[in-house]
Nucleic acid binder design. Structure first.
Length: 927
RNA sequence: GGGCCUUUAGCUCAGUUGGUUAGAGCACUGUGUUGAUAACGCAGGGGUCGAUGGUUCGAGCCCAUCAAGGCCCA
């Protein structure tokens, strides 16, 4: 008889232990693109008539490299979309970019330097366009590097014609509904450049100003609680005397103490805490306190303006401080932002007696034509003349200057376009729609409701070049703003054809043709407006501009998923645009993620030097590790990232990778026809399948609820606690030493194969690259599709065990742990080393345990505890008590002989003279 | 200053309607294997649950105040 090969069946695979992700992932992405995986997936689902699930992408700003915030956001979306696709949904992902706005215009202007002034708007816009497109491409490539799947060939851009065309419709609908109105609002204004400035264009530098103490005589105290009398004066302090002509109110802090003081026969009202300072500055001494009241008590008293025939109302404002001045603040809503806000609250008049070049208009007849900065001294003279000036001094303080011409700037009320929150019950409607949305963050609804309740009217106009024009014409003769059905039709055609560039290239006459006529005065002297939309209006329009203009998408979206800053931003602008346009919320559900912080929980700042760059992390560890990090934390709260955290995630990735590697190697010689039917599997195998099914069911639930950190936890826990340390460890004996085509080995492979397929699918939404890499190693005949993305979450479920059976296994596992502990004790005593050197005896008195053990053969138990021998010593009379009743486990060293093939210590080793080193089981299992 | 949120072992997370010595995985330490080896097993140490006060027979869980941190406003 020929001697058989005694070699064992070692696991084998070419799947590398080391991921080498930074090199490999881009190759994978390329393969996805070459194989048109995304397109095929959508086609396939469409053919299946799958229900759709639309996640609408919030557009990042097309500027700069991607940072951790982008990474978090896009990976989360990708997990959602991939999961939904797996579950059989038609789930297209159309990424978008926010392309207009200040930052880009600012950068372009910066690059141009002094040349900017000589360029026309269309020329500057062309450069802005190029700039935006450059970053669309750059960020797009970076997003792809993260493994994000979507329609990258055809993203949506807020500068696209069809996008802008939809904005015409939205604007017109809101205009028709009376939501849009024109009003005054102060903006930063450079009188020298004669232009509005954005926050980012303002620089601060020291500036010398004349500050003045001015008294306002009380005219009527009948409406206020405090009654200081008509001979008292409220004293204000200001560093901008030129704004006094626009004064309409005086603000006091509601909670501060104010007093009426008497000196030299005059009564002055100022904050109690500033009395001494007041005496020093004005030289008025010996102030005698007459009465004291809270700021709120003087609310609604009326003063007389010192040099204009006008009332000045006493109001309350929380931002009043006691740092300098008198605690009584001069309010000119046309010349200050806070003044403006206070003005809205008290319905104050917004006055703007200053023209674009900084000269007083005839609204302030007295100094008409005077430049406001030069007028300061004249105002002082005027105050003296009116006996209203109590003191003046020159002070140097930080003051806003124009970034371009470096001259000091002013706040100047200008005409702006607004969306009213009140007309047609708009605010109430928006709040109602909030209630129809599922806010996955429990506090989300509360947060956005409060914001909408408290927000002012939405100012949608900006005085810039890089944006979508507000589709309004102006009559140069009568000043009428012209928006009619006919002009809108013309504008719509223009935008559709040329995009908003057309607006800036053509005159009103060219755009409107025979419609170029003021409907009010009939003049043909019509100009196109120069304002553009606030970029939040651009992006707020996206639900319509994108979902309604693409065949593959539909409105409303199933989900918006953005950072928590978007309750104020995009969630809100989208909601308002949608309620204004269609009366409905644009999303069925919303979930927000937190901010990314460093290891200490601090925000990342360049100045703190704690900024972590995702591109660096990808280079170091690969995108899948980064994706795993995203999944590992509870994204609804803020999340931390640090070297330690990444190092933990990397460890965890390696564990997962190796688990897959082991599964691949264990089924390397497995074929479909080798599969063992469920009924013929061992009890332990059935238990393993049960565990797998329980895991899959919870993962499914967690994905659906966006609880990815639970997916991560359950998945890694199963890999460690059940698979590596238990099931696979136990299976080694069967896989390596049993007959290669025997039922024991094939049974084990059947289970591992099922796990391999299902676990790869289950983690594929997170580990996009690795899952597909694993997939490539699965033999063709064992899978349906070449790429895992095209597969579906498995529908057929493995049978679950009964509760009683599960309980039995839980008890057995505890018994196993107890046995391992005993063996460990012997190892510490240096009695044994390898587990197979051990034999154990289990003596017990529980009938419960007896029933459990009787269901298993001795060989199975030996295998599962991984020892060479198990013996039982049941008590003579078993009692129906807890499983560990009377339990005693002893471990010892086997005195049998080691089989050199399976390493077990057995009495049969050497019983066959042909194979002297082998045990009888091994001899039987050769081949 | 206001609205909303976060705070449990080194890290990431669990902790059901308040009820006995607060859990998991990873990391760490020790150790075994060398037939998953840049891998795998076993065992062990580690937290006064951000702080203080209160309600209660009893609080990580309820209430109040404070602190640190975050987003959005001012």
């Amino acid at each position: 008889m020929e001697k058989k090969d005694t070699a064992i069946h070692m696991p084998k695979t070419d799947f590398p232990m080391k991921g080498n992700l930074n090199q490999r992932e881009p190759e994978f992405y390329k393969k996805w693109e070459d194989d048109k995986v995304y397109e095929k997936l959508l086609e396939k689902r469409k053919k299946e008539n799958a229900p759709s699930y639309i996640l609408h992408d919030g557009p990042p700003y097309a500027n700069g490299n991607i940072h951790m915030g982008h990474t978090l956001n896009k990976v989360l979306k990708d997990i959602v979309v991939r999961y939904r696709s797996f579950k059989g949904y038609y789930s297209p992902y159309v990424p978008g970019w926010d392309c207009h706005g200040m930052p880009i215009e600012h950068k372009v202007a910066e690059n141009l330097g002094s040349r900017a002034k000589t360029m026309t708007k269309p020329e500057i816009r062309r450069l802005c366009h190029e700039y935006a497109m450059k970053y669309v491409k750059l960020q797009g490539d970076q997003f792809k590097r993260l493994g994000i799947m979507g329609d990258w060939e055809n993203p949506y851009l807020t500068l696209n014609k069809e996008y802008e065309t939809k904005m015409v419709d939205i604007f017109w609908e809101m205009y028709k509904n009376g939501l849009v109105y024109r009003g005054l609002k102060p903006v930063y204004w450079c009188c020298r450049c004669e232009t509005a400035l954005a926050e980012a264009e303002v620089e601060y530098a020291d500036h010398k100003s004349t500050s003045v103490f001015v008294r306002f005589k009380i005219k009527d105290d009948s409406k206020s609680k405090a009654k200081p009398g008509k001979d008292a004066y409220v004293v204000i302090w200001t560093t901008t005397p030129w704004t006094l002509p626009a004064n309409v109110a005086i603000a006091l802090h509601p909670d501060f103490d104010y007093a009426v003081y008497e000196a030299a026969g005059e009564k002055y009202i100022l904050a109690k805490g500033l009395k001494t300072q007041f005496e020093e500055k004005t030289g008025i001494s010996g102030l005698k306190e007459i009465s004291v009241f809270k700021g709120r008590d003087l609310e609604y008293a009326v003063c007389s303006h010192p040099f204009v025939e006008r009332d000045s109302l006493v109001i309350n404002a929380d931002y009043v401080t006691l740092e300098t001045g008198t605690g009584c603040v001069h309010i000119a809503p046309g010349h200050g932002h806070e003044d403006y806000v206070a003005g809205l609250k008290y319905n104050l008049q917004i006055l703007n007696p200053v023209d674009a070049s900084g000269h007083y208009t005839n609204e302030f007849e007295l100094m008409k034509g005077e430049h406001v900065f030069a007028a300061n001294l004249k105002i002082v003279e005027l105050l003296k003349e009116k006996k209203a000036l109590l003191a003046q001094e020159e002070i140097t303080h930080s003051y806003a200057h124009c970034w371009r011409c470096k001259s000091p700037i002013i706040y100047r009320a200008t005409n702006q376009w607004f969306i009213s929150m009140e007309k047609n019950n708009f605010r109430a409607k928006a709040l109602d729609e909030v209630k129809n949305v599922k806010w996955f963050n429990e506090w989300g609804e509360d947060r956005i409701s409060k914001m909408i309740s408290g927000r002012p009217d939405w100012c949608i106009s900006r005085q810039r070049s890089w944006g979508v024009p507000i589709f309004v014409f102006t009559c140069k003769d009568c000043g009428e703003s012209i928006v009619t059905e006919k002009t809108i039709a013309k504008v719509r055609a223009l935008i559709k054809e040329e995009g908003s560039d057309g607006w800036f290239k053509h005159t009103a006459k060219e755009i409107l043709g025979e419609e170029c006529k003021c409907p009010k005065c009939g003049s043909g002297n019509v100009d196109r407006g120069n304002d553009i939309f606030d970029v939040w209006f651009d992006s707020g329009a996206s639900s319509f501009s994108v979902l309604e203009t693409r065949d593959d998408l539909s409105w409303p979206a199933d989900l918006y998923l953005e950072g928590s800053d978007q309750y104020r931003g995009w969630f809100q602008s989208s909601l308002l645009a949608a309620v204004g346009f269609r009366g409905k919320a644009p999303f069925k559900s919303v979930i927000s993620h937190g901010w990314i912080l460093d290891g200490q929980g601090r925000a990342m700042h360049k100045s703190l030097g704690n900024v972590i760059n995702p591109l660096d992390l990808i280079k170091k560890g690969g995108a899948d590790v980064l994706r795993l990090w995203v999944a590992s934390e509870d994204f609804t709260a803020d999340q931390s990232i640090s070297e330690e955290i990444m190092s933990r995630v990397t460890d965890s990735y390696r564990r997962i990778r190796n688990t897959f590697r082991y599964m691949l190697s264990a089924v390397n010689d497995f074929k479909k026809e080798n599969a063992v039917p469920y009924e013929k599997l061992s009890a332990f195998d059935k238990y393993a399948l049960h565990r797998m099914q329980v895991l899959l069911d919870s993962l499914d639930k967690y994905y659906e609820r966006f609880e990815f950190h639970r997916v991560y936890r359950e998945f890694t826990n199963l890999c460690s606690t059940f698979l590596s340390s238990y099931y696979f460890d136990v299976l080694k004996d069967r896989l390596y030493t049993f007959k290669s085509n025997g039922i024991e080995r094939r049974g084990a492979q059947t289970v591992i194969y099922k796990m391999l397929i299902n676990l790869t699918k289950a983690i594929a939404p997170v580990l996009a690259f690795t899952a597909d890499e694993v997939w490539q190693f699965i033999p063709q005949e064992l899978k349906n599709e070449n790429h895992i993305q095209l597969e579906k979450w498995t529908n057929e479920k493995e049978p679950l065990l009964s509760d009683e059976e599960v309980q039995g296994w839980e008890i057995f596992n505890k018994l196993r742990d107890a046995a391992l502990k005993k063996i460990e004790d012997k190892r510490k005593e240096k009695i044994i080393n390898h587990p197979y050197e051990a034999v154990i005896n289990i003596s017990y008195a529980s009938a419960k345990l007896d029933r459990i053990l009787k269901k298993l053969s001795k060989e199975e138990v030996e295998q599962m505890i991984i020892v060479s021998g198990v013996s039982y010593s049941p008590a003579g009379k078993l009692e129906d008590k807890e499983w560990d009743f009377g339990l005693e486990i002893t471990a010892g060293k086997s005195d049998a002989v080691k089989c050199e093939r399976c390493w077990r210590y057995t009495d049969t080793t050497g019983s066959n003279p042909e194979y002297p080193g082998l045990c009888s089981r091994c001899v039987e299992n050769l081949g």
